[in-house]
């Protein structure tokens, strides 16, 4: 089945997007016989938080399942390698992507945990003991 991809039409300057206007209302039978598609690059945003014990990174990974995500920490870089279905393609076509997060030097490499829910990956990165604040008791 042939797919024709179009540039994404997310304009900030119109009130709504027209799904049909350009390529449906003025359709021709030839056009109708071809499956058409519009698409855009999904956004992968990252947010960082901190408390005394750890850092937390929230990463947007919409469309990614747990079994299709691999995490690897190497030399201060956390590599997120994932696969997800390409758009609405039902033929099993997956796209491979990779995102790299630079983690703080003060993270304990053995203290990283992760959960994935509704397309949000939450990474908890424990701080190394020497990076935690030390409370000094006043005698």
């Amino acid at each position: 089945m042939k797919l024709v991809r179009y540039p994404h039409s997310n304009s900030l300057f119109s009130d709504f997007d027209s799904l049909f206007a350009d390529h449906f209302r003025a359709f021709s039978p030839l056009l109708r016989s071809t499956l058409r598609s519009s698409t855009s690059a999904p956004y992968s945003g990252v947010e960082w938080y901190e408390n005394e014990e750890s850092y937390v990174a929230r990463v947007e990974l919409p469309g990614v399942k747990k079994e299709n995500l691999k995490l690897e920490l190497d030399d201060g870089l956390l590599r997120l390698a994932f696969e997800r279905r390409r758009g609405l393609d039902e033929a099993g076509s997956f796209e491979k992507r990779e995102q790299v997060l630079r983690v703080p030097e003060t993270v304990n490499p053995d203290g990283i945990s992760a959960s994935l829910e509704n397309g949000i990956l939450e990474l908890t990165l424990a701080k190394a003991d020497e990076a935690k604040p030390v409370r000094i008791e006043i005698k």
């Binding site: 519009s38 698409t39 956004y43």
Partner: peptide
């Protein structure tokens, strides 16, 4: 305004 993908048959 979220990203979206569309297609038709």
């Amino acid at each position: 305004r979220p990203h979206y993908t569309s297609r038709y048959d």
